[in-house]
Amino acid sequence: MVVDTPRLTDAALHLRDELGFNYLSDVAATDYLGWGGKGVSGYIGTNRGRDLNEPATQGYQRLPRDKPRRFSVSYHLLGLRAGAPRVRLQVWVDEDEQVPSLVSVWPTADWHEREAFDLMGLRFDGHPNQRRILMDDDWEGHPLRKDYPIGGEPVRFSGEA
């Protein structure tokens, strides 16, 4: 379920109070920079499975569908009741946009949002303690962004001035 950023808090409150999704399981931020670009050839094969003895079930090839913005934040909610209903609440933001913080709705969002800030560089509006959590406080960059190189951290040598 995708909502606009300004309506996120309302949607969360509605889901929690009216529809009974009282448990926030996870907050997952994703960076879609370079999605569907070079080097991505799309999927070959069909969802229904492949039968080698049946011609023309080798599937199709296509590029992934476009995404509306660069980042998505997915809130995975769960209702602690029979049937265990789950819903994914999603917002899309660009680099300079803020996401409203849901700490006042689900206190457990505290560390999840700090993690998303730390590793993805997303800012959460109204978060009471917006600091890095996994990386050092003086770390530069946000490691899980797609433009952050792997093995790119500077190494300091002992003889260096």
């Binding site: 931020a29 994703t30 960076d31 879609y32 991505v40 050839s41 999927y43 296509r62 590029l63």
Partner: peptide
């Protein structure tokens, strides 16, 4: 485990 795939041979995102 939250997994995003773009249809390629590597995961796009694993959380």
């Amino acid at each position: 485990c939250y997994v995003v795939s773009d249809g390629g041979p590597k995961p796009w995102r694993v959380k």
